[in-house]
């Protein structure tokens, strides 16, 4: 296990690459999910305002 983590002396290079890859992939997933939620909330608020105007 220790040998695996050590990566033949290149641990910092290999693991930082994989960590950055993980961060980039997660950011790609989170961004559209958050954008969707924000958009739906905004559209719902707009709809409510429109309903109030009608009355």
């Amino acid at each position: 296990m220790n040998e695996f983590l050590h990566m033949g002396g290149y641990a910092s290079y290999v693991w930082s690459s994989y960590a950055i890859a993980l961060v980039v992939l997660l950011a790609n997933l989170v961004a559209p999910l958050r954008a969707r939620r924000k958009l739906l909330t905004r559209l719902a608020q707009r709809e409510k305002r429109a309903q109030r105007m009608k009355r």
Partner: peptide, 20 residues
């Protein structure tokens, strides 16, 4: 990370290839 052998020239650093 576990099955592929170590590269004879680049050691384990070549494993960056799998994301790069």
């Amino acid at each position: 990370l576990l099955v592929a052998p170590t590269d004879y020239q680049q050691g384990d650093s070549y494993r960056i290839m799998f994301v790069h």
